[in-house]
């Protein structure tokens, strides 16, 4: 199944991706990005917004 994952070696935990998610499918817990795949619709807003290119779609 397609889903979005975070590359933790690239993520700088800035929270930009959280601000563009209208499905509440991610959260910045302290400095750790959580993604909730059950809420994610693969709209790609977070992927496009990430300044570092740390979010990727995987099969």
């Amino acid at each position: 199944m397609k889903r979005i994952i975070v590359n933790r070696y690239k993520c700088a935990y800035c929270g930009a991706c959280v601000s563009v998610c209208k499905f509440d499918a991610n959260e910045l817990v302290e400095t750790y990005l959580e993604i909730y795949p059950e809420k994610c619709t693969l709209c790609m807003a977070c992927v496009k917004t990430c300044p570092m290119g740390a979010l990727e779609v995987v099969e």
């Binding site: 930009a16 601000s19 563009v20 998610c21 209208k22 807003a45 496009k48 917004t49 990430c50 300044p51």
Partner: peptide, 9 residues
Amino acid sequence: TLKLSEIES
């Protein structure tokens, strides 16, 4: 929620 035209990355 911000649109993709409402945020600077």
